[in-house]
Computed example of a mutant assay.
Amino acid sequence: MSYKTVLVHVDESIRSDFRARIAADIARDEGAHLIGTAVTGVSRFIYQDGNISSADPNLATHLQFLSERAARSVTGFTQRMQELDAPSYEGMVAHDEAGGGIGLLARYCDLVVVGQASRNEPSPSVLPDFAEYLVMHSGRPVLIVPYVEDFTSVARRPLVAWDASRESTRAVTDAIPLLKRAELVQVAIFNPNAASDAHGEQPGADIALFLSRHGVKVQVSVHKTSTDVGNALLSLAHDLDSDLIVMGGYGHSRFREMIMGGVTRTVMESMTVPILMSH
């Protein structure tokens, strides 16, 4: 298993270039094609009339402005890839809002790389729940890059949050290309007695065996905590000097509002290292 197509969301935010570099490094390691995509931020359904300019000249002018802004982001991406001598890449503009545009393209990619929403730099074209929406609806693993901190590596020392659930299973499987390249993968299990049937007689033994058969170097640790598991996970990642957290994404949507599970919400709000999530 490997990633052959990596999709990264690019825009005019401060962290866009850093995010693109992380995606480029992964694509290079995997021998994958990299697609940098900017969005206009307007739903594609507004274009379906096909006669926008005559119906509302002001709207047509605004859409042109949004398209030009997205095109600048793509130009910046392609220039950065040239500087990095990326072997296989392309840039494109999606005439859509972020969730719909990137979510649709994601179905034809192996990995999606996006940024964590920043309170200090709200995006004019991306809703705050963009990353959560992709996790829940794209059907692909989503690598979320924090809006703070810089990293010298990603996925050299991953931490897997394992609870034996369907979502956790999906996340681990989707992350295998990254885990195989890691120096050591730490698998953390919190309060295993809460799901003893799923974990088996020896919590962590089965997932460790599964990963080892894929050539992953793995170490399992079991933790008991009476505090919030999300904060305990982030604290453990700090203690282990982890540079990636792999975990299932839990929640559901109510129309466009994302109702995320407690652990998922805590980690996505307070993350300081990249998070790979699948649902």
Rank of each mutant, 00 (worst) to 15 (best):
K4H: 15
V8Q: 00
S16D: 09
A20E: 01
R21D: 15
A27Q: 04
R28N: 12
R28K: 11
A38S: 15
V39Q: 04
G41V: 12
G50D: 14
G50K: 12
S54C: 09
A60E: 14
T61S: 15
H62S: 11
L63H: 07
E68S: 15
A71W: 06
A71D: 11
T78D: 15
S88W: 10
V93C: 06
H95M: 15
D96Y: 06
E97L: 12
Y108D: 05
A117W: 13
A117E: 06
N120H: 03
P122I: 04
S123F: 13
L127G: 14
A131M: 07
E132G: 10
V135G: 04
V135K: 01
M136N: 07
P146M: 04
P146G: 07
W162P: 08
S168M: 05
I176S: 01
I189L: 02
F190T: 00
H199I: 01
E201F: 03
D206H: 12
K217E: 14
V218N: 05
V220N: 12
V220Y: 09
V229F: 11
L233R: 07
A237H: 06
L240C: 02
L244H: 02
V246T: 04
V246D: 02
G248Y: 03
Y250V: 10
F255G: 08
E257C: 05
M260D: 03
V263Y: 00
V273P: 11
